[in-house]
């Protein structure tokens, strides 16, 4: 499944729910799979008593990974050519996240069509937690 350029116009958008009521256990799962065991993400005692945060919080890269799932579900597997983000707010246990891709432009190089998207992930309060862009090869 891939996108066709003729079906896309600037402003075309796709959105998906990434997670609802994010669990600490999922953050632990991501720590184990990624190898990033920073206790800020998995150790409530350290995060609150030492680091001064209200609780543990998710790795930015977990939010990026989940946002990447929205993109690959939309543009097709193996189609991304670029994906870049800024982490603008922390993601906490209990958060609901939703991600949106909005088409900005389509360019063509040597017969290859590339679609440029703006990517935004927001939480249940509407706060932007991740903002960036992605480029994907389309048919």
């Amino acid at each position: 499944m891939s996108l066709r350029a003729e079906n896309l116009t600037p402003g075309s958008s796709h959105n998906a729910s990434l997670v609802s009521d994010l669990k600490r256990t999922q953050i632990v799962q991501y720590a184990g799979a990624s190898g990033d065991y920073n206790p800020l993400h998995t150790d409530e005692v350290f995060a609150t008593e030492v680091a001064g945060y209200p609780s543990v919080f998710a790795h930015g890269m977990l939010t990026m990974a989940m946002t990447g799932k929205m993109l690959t579900d939309y543009v097709g597997d193996g189609r991304l050519t670029q994906f870049g983000v800024r982490f603008t707010n922390q993601v906490w246990p209990g958060d609901d996240l939703e991600a949106t891709a909005v088409l900005q432009s389509i360019e063509e190089h040597d017969g290859v069509k590339l679609a440029n998207f703006e990517v935004t992930t927001t939480n249940q309060d509407g706060a932007v937690v991740l903002k960036g862009s992605a480029q994907a090869r389309v048919d």
Partner: peptide
């Protein structure tokens, strides 16, 4: 100890 390194941005080119 509240300071520390946080991840601000990440980009991938495939």
């Amino acid at each position: 100890g509240g300071g520390g390194i946080l991840h601000a941005e990440q980009r991938f080119e495939y």
